[in-house]
Design a protein around this nucleic acid. Structure first.
Lengths: 170, 170
DNA sequence: TCTTGATCCTCTAGTGACTGTAGGACGTAG
DNA sequence: CTACGTCCTACAGTCACTAGAGGATCAAGA
């Protein structure tokens, strides 16, 4: 079975060398075998686990949650009940993420469509994610409401930028 | 139009007071109006924007990306082409996240189902997210492959834990 | 009106999850 | 055997918060 040096693992999984060592230091990855000259060597399994961690992080899961998830995969059948409750809990988290991501997708797709058809872009991007979070009932910006009076205007003019915010600078 | 103190905003959006101030300090939120005694006051618009930021962060978007997204919502129609390219780029990101989240969901749902029906749980959780990331072709763990020989064994035994990793400790 | 407790202010320091760098050992192609 | 790339440890820095100190303001009750 093939083994890989830490650099090769980094290249294959997209996780930086330093990050791999960091994950090892916090116990998220097991300490790997070492060569006679003290270099880490990894197998396919670690590659998979690392790729999993990377994706999970990109999806917004925190390290304790990832520990859980990895634990699920490693759970012997005996403790199925524990695994089940952890799995259910994360299932809710995932469903909520999916829902919000889909809402955001719809709004952004809408912008792209509007743009390509030369129509005035409406900016429901913020509304897509903001509504369901303002806890108390009567949603602040009910469905369909857009940000500012832009749609009614021919082009951006004075009242708009006061109402709708700032420039993007990265 | 109703205005809110920072604490009220925090309660309604689920974003901590200190975090709101932090977002202001990095320019992600505009500086709000102040009362005569120097207290911040916010309107519905800031509430929405903040809720948006919160969800976006929970979905794994970084602050520069969120700046972009907010920028989209604030974009005057004039710069529609710019907005379009940014929107398209984030659309890809979102689609990729959706895909991976759905794959993870399937695997975790599978575990829950297996558990509730008393079957031996298979641990495809890691496989769900690891496969598509190992860059070079011939996927390391091709579809359907599971983590370790667990499914074939009656209960966890010696070779498994060496192969499949560590204990969960939070 | 006075008090008391909640909330606000600024400033600074700490945390989680990385990320980069210094200083040195090891590996490998020419 | 040289040169350059990769690896090692250790530690400091960054990003996105988070908590705490020390003090001012507000709102409700005695």
């Amino acid at each position: 079975m093939a083994t890989y040096a830490i650099g090769a693992v980094a290249r294959r999984t997209g996780v930086k060398v330093t990050t791999i060592r960091y994950y090892e230091s916090i116990g998220l990855l097991p300490r790997p075998e070492r060569t006679a000259t003290n270099r880490r060597t990894y197998g396919e399994l670690e590659l998979q686990r690392l790729a999993f961690i990377r994706h999970a992080r990109e999806l917004g899961f925190e390290i304790p949650a990832i520990r859980d998830l990895i634990g699920l995969a490693d759970t012997p059948t005996a403790s199925c009940a524990d695994a089940d409750s952890i799995a259910r809990q994360h299932l809710h988290e995932i469903d909520s993420k999916l829902e919000r991501l889909q809402a955001l997708r719809v709004e952004i797709q809408g912008m792209v469509d509007a743009c390509s058809s030369g129509r005035v872009a409406t900016c429901g991007v913020i509304g897509a994610l903001s509504e369901k979070s303002i806890d108390s009932g009567r949603a602040v910006a009910s469905a369909g409401e857009r940000c500012g009076p832009r749609t009614d205007l021919p082009l951006a003019s004075k009242p708009v930028e006061a109402a709708c915010g700032k420039v993007v600078r990265r």
